[in-house]
């Protein structure tokens, strides 16, 4: 059973690696479904990670940390909203700016606050989201395969992990089963149709961006107070952009987003494990090749070489009511 537990272990770390990407990807989904490009996922996540770690370190409460994360991330989403909805500015530029803002501000504030060169102090157990043992995990763990999967793979993650996975069906439900979802999908495709039906485009887009802010807040808090135990400089390390790639890959749909993020999670877990492993025929696969794979796949997909991924039609264009 050595191989089996190896696989379980790898899948377990895949899940952990997939969670922040998944949350950010869903955040991007709400935003882009509403017609607002969200390059700033990375920055919102980073800002949130810092806020969570800092507040958790100061107050000792992971929950207050999470609240701070959501507050910061949503605040950044509102800057994006003002720039792209009210001022009809370039949404991409605004997103790029937010990424740098987070990159600089987190270290700047952290540096003067904690005097640790931008990092935050290590968090104790209470100040983090600790693993949750699901009911009967220990008892069921004895059952081969099913029980082991339950105990080792499904049980034992922190709360945010479960929230992230729950967010997928919830998002799917909201998007396809509720009035809000219907309007959200419509506003990203044809805002004029919505406007002529007497519904405010601005309000809907603000709502979408707020939801995205909350989700990025969760993602950031997960990085610094769930998976990790402190904030460090640029700790998102491009996850926001992987999430963007996943969103394109999933064609802006929640359930495919889950699979894509899990796939990307597996890829990054594999990077660590495949180092130095010789494969028959191809020999050793460079770690960097696996690292680059999500990005390469996205480029290939965008170019229409394997299927087509078409963004919501109105994405990126400020809505201007015609005269």
């Amino acid at each position: 059973m050595n191989f089996f537990s190896d696989v379980i272990l790898m899948l377990d770390s895949s899940i952990r690696l997939a969670v922040p990407i998944l949350l950010a990807c869903l955040a991007g989904l709400y935003s882009e479904r509403s017609g607002i490009v969200d390059i700033g996922l990375e920055g919102k996540m980073l800002g949130a990670a810092f806020a969570a770690a800092a507040i958790a370190a100061v107050t000792g409460s992971a929950w207050l940390g999470l609240l701070a994360a959501i507050f910061v991330s949503s605040g950044m989403a509102m800057i994006h909203a003002i720039a792209s909805i009210n001022m009809r500015g370039n949404q991409i530029i605004s997103g790029v700016a937010l990424n740098f803002l987070a990159l600089g501000a987190t270290v700047f504030v952290g540096h003067s606050w904690f005097k640790r060169g931008g990092s935050t102090p290590n968090l104790g157990t209470d100040a983090r989201f600790s693993p949750i043992e699901l009911p009967f995990a220990e008892q069921l763990g004895g059952i081969p395969i099913v029980g082991e999967i339950y105990e080792q793979l499904i049980s034992g993650h922190n709360l945010i992990v479960y929230v992230a996975f729950l967010a997928v069906p919830v998002t799917a439900w909201v998007l396809f089963r509720t009035r809000f979802g219907l309007r959200l999908r419509a506003v990203g495709e044809n805002p004029t149709a919505l406007d002529t039906a007497g519904i405010s485009v601005t309000k809907l887009r603000y709502q979408a961006l707020i939801i995205g802010g909350i989700l990025c807040g969760l993602a950031g808090a997960y990085l610094s107070t769930g998976q990790g135990a402190s904030f460090s400089d640029n700790m998102t390390a491009g996850r926001g952009f992987i999430a963007l790639a996943a969103l394109i890959f999933a064609k802006w749909r929640p359930v495919p987003a889950l699979w894509t993020c899990l796939l990307f999670g597996v890829l990054s877990a594999a990077q660590i494990r495949l180092q130095g492993v010789e494969f028959p025929l191809i020999g050793e696969v460079p770690v960097q090749a696996i690292q680059a794979l999500p990005y390469i796949l996205t480029v290939v997909l965008l170019a229409g070489f394997i299927g087509r991924s078409v963004a919501p039609k109105a994405v990126g264009q400020p809505y201007i009511k015609e005269r």
Partner: peptide, 10 residues
């Protein structure tokens, strides 16, 4: 970041 935000997006 602020320069990009103010001179680019706003």
């Amino acid at each position: 970041a602020l320069v990009i935000l103010f001179t680019g997006a706003m």
